[in-house]
Amino acid sequence: MLKRHLARIERRHKPASVALRHAPTGHDELDHALGGGLLRGRVHELQVADAGESGSGAGFAGVLAQRLGGELLWLREEAAERGMGRLHAAGLAEIGFDPARLILGVLPDAAAVLRAAADAVRCPALGAVVIELWGDPRPLDLTATRRLALAAEGSGVTALLLRVAGHEAPSAAQTRIGVAPTRSTALAANAPGHPAWRIELLRQRGRPDGGVWRVEWDRANGVLRDQEHDGETVSGAVVPVSGDRPAGAVLAG
């Protein structure tokens, strides 16, 4: 009796296929660590340590949204949009994300962002929702992330919680990924190369975490790939985490 019951539950929750449930990033080791790619219908936290690296974090969120496909809703706080740089559609187009698929919501504060996010994550027509929050806003607590996670599981929408200059806090996210810029592979005449990140899998629900990769974005093929190391990149590739300024002061200044 119980077995039959279990079988029925399992059948109901059986994934249609791995490819549908995961969005592979294209980077083999990262995909392997994530169990096939970024799990859809979950909340993924992207942690950017330093306010000055917000562009890097936004770029990585854009790249993941590109891998996830579909329409993207990007929610930000007004203070960030005003003071920390506007989200530039032409820049998103340059990393291969079509701005026609983007809806930007600039909301007055973190509470409004989370409220809009809770609504948006329930809309299954969206491909992904980026929720960008600066510092450690009070409304972002375990309850809020759990609410998002439940909504995401129900609808299959993937939520990317982009946290800039915030501290790690308990959350219901599936993964927590540390994102930091790293030196790019130089092009001819020592020109800055393709977008490159140092990705650290800080936490993963139900799977082993840990692992650091240096990845770069290959726009021609639309995948993340392992950064081709040259001697200089490896030697200088210590990514400092700036703790010299409190997160709150970053937005203010």
């Binding site: 917000s54 562009g55 936004a58 770029g59 854009g62 920390m84 740089g85 506007r86 989200l87 530039h88 032409a90 820049g91 998103l92 187009a93 340059e94 990393i95 291969g96 790019s184 092009l187 020109a191 800055p192 190369g193 393709h194 977008p195 726009r219 021609a220």
Partner: peptide, 13 residues
């Protein structure tokens, strides 16, 4: 496509 991005993702205005 072979080129790196020439426009930034955050623009200060």
């Amino acid at each position: 496509p072979g080129e790196p991005p020439h426009r930034p993702i955050h623009l200060f205005d």
